[in-house]
Design a protein around this nucleic acid. Structure first.
Lengths: 198, 198
DNA sequence: TTTGCTATTTTTAGCCG
DNA sequence: ACGGCTAAAAATAGCAA
């Protein structure tokens, strides 16, 4: 007999726990993708995982983008926030061709969320960046992923960590500029990355 | 025969789609809670739903808090960001009694994410607030939920929408103060809420 | 450790009130 | 629209290599 009714309590054995995590993580992403596809539900799943590179998955119109949030650059929530913005920018850019962040007929869209978004940018190339972390280093981190078409996963590294105060002092234009320039700046700024060991 | 192999494509029929959404939404939350419990994985699931009150679920140590993000107050990502902060503050407060945002033995915790967080506040009472929206109004919105013990869901309304520029100009102390005072201010500020019809 | 394989549990599509 | 119901489909615990 292969399978007990699972008792939902913390799995003490680390090996068992990681195996379970890997399986359930995969299943969870699938579920998220399915719900996104079937019902066009935009989602962001942020996972703070101590096991492997953590991930934030944002799903939208059958598309996924992965963003790795290097814990060394984490400054409280600033990177969660920043990556949410990255994710959303990417979402807008990659779905802009539909003219909206959603292609679902809104049932009673007196005021949809997407309609309150800044104008969707159309078809801007989204240049993903890979973080330069040692994958074998078992460091809890945060990552992000947006579901894109064809299940392509793009990884985005975070080059420099502005402090939360810096971040909060930015205005809209600063943020947009930073996001737009991130892919370029990142390449040049990587040397200042303490974990840039590749 | 009751069930076809499901074809993963957008469900055109709105009724069918919503039924599917409701079922899968429930299942997804369960999966998230299970993974959190079994492997102590902290997660935030943000759902932009056009059907019912949208939700962001952040799960941690078997605890859930729900935060409703009123779309009328949504200003681009400012409320996603703000609610992420709310969620995280609530997380810290509700899990502070463990002395950390995680009670899992870290495998190789040279530098855990939680260790880079601001000092966890211990045992502060988290006062949830209910948004004053008409539940029957079919307005896409964003909500949030953190999994708490006993599956109690607390709902937090967002009283006033600072513009994104305002938000970004806040510093750490401003944010903390705003978060700390939110439950109190919300009560007094509700009248300025355009959807406050109860 | 990770991968592959079932047996079993769990989820959920389609129905019916 | 919601709340069961049930059987098929899907996820996954335990084992094996």
């Amino acid at each position: 007999m292969t399978r007990k009714k699972v008792i939902f309590y913390f799995i003490e054995n680390e090996t068992d726990r990681k195996v379970s995590y890997n399986k359930r993580h995969e299943g969870l992403l699938k579920k998220v993708q399915e719900l996104n596809t079937l019902c066009d539900i935009e989602m962001a799943l942020i996972i703070y995982s101590p096991y492997i590179t953590n991930e934030m998955h944002e799903v939208l119109n059958g598309k996924t983008i992965s963003i790795d949030m290097n814990p060394y650059y984490l400054n409280d929530l600033s990177y969660v926030i920043k990556n949410l913005q990255l994710v959303h920018e990417a979402m807008k850019k990659n779905v802009g061709d539909k003219g909206s962040t959603s292609n679902v007929p809104q049932s009673t869209p007196s005021k949809t969320m997407t309609s309150m978004m800044p104008s969707p940018i159309i078809d801007s190339p989204f240049t993903p960046m890979k973080p330069q972390m040692d994958p074998s280093a078992e460091i809890p981190s945060i990552g992000a992923s947006i579901q894109m078409s064809n299940y392509q996963n793009y990884s985005i590294g975070i080059p420099q960590s502005p402090s939360l105060i810096e971040l909060l002092n930015w205005n809209d234009d600063d943020v947009v500029t930073w996001l737009d320039d991130l892919s370029l700046n990142n390449i040049n700024d990587q040397d200042s990355n303490p974990t840039n060991n590749i």
